[in-house]
């Protein structure tokens, strides 16, 4: 085990996979300077052919990733902020998600699109989105949202080594957080959720950045209310470990999903739909979604802060599934 910051775990994964396979190339905006630190030092280490700064041309970078992958490279393209997926969406939605299908399976597309997402840092409406839903809906794209350093490293390595396109969501504002990362060639498989806590009173599914407030909420619930939750980290949204969620709901009868997407058609809505379809008989209370309201994220911190799911909202949602109300805060 090594104690690593989440951003350093990302960097470790990139270094290891680029060392391992010379077909891996990385390009994007400012990957040399690396504002986040995730691609720092790669150009010095692997040279200007394999690691390239690109013009600010998100519209074509995604399509280029598809062409380069189809022609034999393993491509990591850093799209910078998740909002820029919108700018480059044709290459993802019309090309990466469909080229294999449209050609009857002739091609493999080993592409990892890296983006940083999430609000709460006064970045303004165009740098703070969490666009899980549009990606999850495409069908042909893996969607990965790690919550800690170890999974970040293991999932990124799996993405780069895999043969399918993946959008890898880096939790914004969590890059400095430390975690224990296993030594050696640490890989985390897609489609396998992590059971972060096993409590049994209610099931909380928390996605990506939302694991932190969910953990804080779980502490409050245990300490103040004597409620112990199953806390589930899906780790990958596509493929989704439905069975792990359903197994927990079968025990608890209660589900709260914490997701930083906007509420309408959020990823949380999808989880609730799955449980409604396959786990309805286990439910003992209406399911709750803790999400971002259907508004853009504002700049002013006092206006932005309450929009992002926080421990208080998660605690209230869990208690509601148990027919209880939060204690009045002084």
């Amino acid at each position: 085990m090594a104690r690593r910051r989440l951003m350093h775990a990302l960097n470790d994964a990139l270094v290891e996979e680029m060392e391992r396979d010379e077909r891996v190339i990385l390009f994007g905006e400012d990957v040399e300077i690396s504002m986040f630190g995730d691609t720092k030092g790669l150009r010095e280490r692997f040279g200007p052919r394999r690691v390239r700064d690109t013009p600010i041309s998100e519209g074509i970078l995604t399509g280029m990733a598809v062409g380069a992958a189809a022609a034999g490279q393993r491509v990591v393209v850093h799209m910078f902020m998740a909002n820029f997926l919108y700018t480059g969406f044709d290459g993802i939605a019309n090309q990466a998600a469909k080229l294999r299908f449209m050609t009857g399976g002739q091609v493999r597309l080993p592409i990892t699109f890296m983006v940083l997402y999430g609000g709460g840092r006064a970045l303004g409406a165009q740098h703070a989105d969490t666009p899980f839903p549009m990606l999850v809906n495409l069908g042909g794209i893996n969607v990965v949202a790690p919550t800690n350093a170890a999974d970040t490293k293991g999932l990124l390595k799996t993405a780069i080594r895999g043969d399918n396109p993946t959008v890898f969501f880096e939790p914004g504002g969590r890059g400095g957080e430390f975690g224990e990362v296993p030594d050696g060639d640490h890989l985390v498989p897609f489609g396998r959720a992590a059971i972060v806590r096993g409590g049994g009173d209610a099931t909380v599914v928390a996605v990506g950045s939302m694991m932190k407030p969910a953990l804080q909420a779980a502490d409050v619930l245990e300490r103040t209310y004597g409620v112990a939750v199953d806390l589930i980290d899906p780790r990958t949204l596509v493929p989704l470990d439905e069975d792990a969620i359903l197994a927990s709901v079968a025990r608890t009868g209660r589900l709260v999903v914490v997701d930083e997407s906007r509420d309408r058609c959020s990823f949380a809505s999808h989880v609730a739909a799955v449980v409604g379809d396959r786990g309805f008989a286990s439910l003992r209370a209406p399911m709750k979604r803790v999400t971002v309201p259907n508004v853009a994220l504002p700049y002013a911190p006092p206006a932005e802060k309450p929009l992002i799911p926080n421990p208080e909202r998660i605690v209230a949602a869990v208690l509601e599934t148990l027919g209880r109300a939060p204690l009045a805060t002084p």
Partner: peptide, 16 residues
């Protein structure tokens, strides 16, 4: 839609 794909294929060709 093919412009990006061809540009990427050209990048791969250059790498290879």
């Amino acid at each position: 839609g093919g412009i990006g794909i061809a540009t990427g294929a050209a990048l791969a060709a250059q790498m290879q």
